[in-house]
């Protein structure tokens, strides 16, 4: 069985996000004054062959996210198994 996992990677709160800052300033100058903050991140889809044991994949995705998809020094990640 193939399952889909979604990993969202964002910069940590304390790290300056220049892209988010730039988007925010464009939104403000376009009149969207209610917008308080913008963070830009990455959205990554994984297709995983699960075999019989579907419990293991959460751990595997977590490991992949920690070791490859994000840089723990500057980024956080969020996992969703669909």
């Amino acid at each position: 069985m193939i399952k889909k996992a979604v990993v969202k990677v964002t910069l940590k709160e304390e790290v300056l996000d220049p892209q988010g800052k730039a988007v925010l300033s464009v939104l403000k100058s376009s009149g969207y004054n209610n917008v308080r903050g913008v963070r830009v991140g990455k959205y990554i889809e994984l297709e995983i062959e699960t075999g019989k044991n579907t419990v293991l994949i959460e751990n595997e995705v977590k490991e992949i996210s920690e070791k490859v998809l994000s840089n723990p020094l500057i980024e956080n990640f969020d996992i969703e198994i669909l």
Partner: peptide, 10 residues
């Protein structure tokens, strides 16, 4: 140690 971010000018 450390990491690289996108240039501040983007």
């Amino acid at each position: 140690g450390g990491a690289m971010l996108t240039n501040s000018s983007l």
